[in-house]
Design a protein around this nucleic acid. Structure first.
Lengths: 130, 130
DNA sequence: TATTGTTATACTCTATAACTATA
DNA sequence: TATAGTTATAGAGTATAACAATA
């Protein structure tokens, strides 16, 4: 049942992401960078469960659009310091809110008495991770 | 949160399916055919959300292993009548039980007071489908 | 020599188009 | 001509291998 739910959520998010001209991976990256800075693209990739080669085009695009900064670390010029810009954080907030709205609407299908337990259980099963 | 949960469940199922020498699609097909017979591969494909061309190799394999029957419909020899054999249904039951066991174990992470509501909500969100 | 980021390549999954056989 | 199934082909997404820069 989890797979169909995921598909449904992805279908719900797709038009929102398209409206804001941002891909799913780009949104994932932007969200992480809005929460904290990263030192090293490989660390970021690892963190979001992606291959390091897969996020390069994503970072290129985000950087070109001024949504993130991406500078060599002075202490080790092999690595890149990654951070969301103010503009990037603003965009992320907009998208986040739009998605949140849709999710709330979807959640309204669930009887209110079950909602809290549902979200709590979902959090437990995803955060324990093992 | 749904996506990580789905990934986790898939990771949980993968070794079981491998142990029984059956792919995810094959298991999906076998499960459907264990529940009812189908008239037409395209109908089956549609039902499980797959392209009709994608299940052909799967059906070939299942048939070769004697897990399903696949005969031309005498009434319209273009179409195939699809059904799980007794052997196929047995295999499906084994796999199903193994997966069920793992799922129960995973669910045990959720406080028992939340479990019912969680499963109920999940069912609501996947069955309404709209 | 080892590591970060990058590029080039190959592989997997999926969708599309063309073909056959029936109707 | 239209449809079910099949095969061949092309495209996206992803992973692997080779490379350049830095340590």
């Amino acid at each position: 049942m989890a797979a169909p739910l995921t598909r449904r959520l992805l279908a719900l998010e797709a038009p929102i992401l398209e409206r804001y001209g941002i891909s799913m991976w780009a949104y994932t990256v932007l969200s992480r960078l809005s929460e904290k800075e990263y030192r090293g693209q490989n660390v970021l990739a690892e963190d979001i469960g992606a291959d390091k080669t897969r996020i390069i085009d994503v970072l290129d695009d985000l950087q070109d659009r001024g949504l993130i900064s991406r500078d060599p670390d002075p202490a080790d010029r092999r690595a890149r310091l990654l951070a969301a810009t103010a503009k990037g954080r603003r965009l992320r907030e907009q998208v986040r809110r739009a998605i949140r709205r849709e999710e709330e609407q979807l959640l309204s299908e669930v009887p209110s008495s079950d909602r809290e337990a549902f979200v709590r259980a979902l959090r437990t099963l995803t955060e324990s991770a093992g």
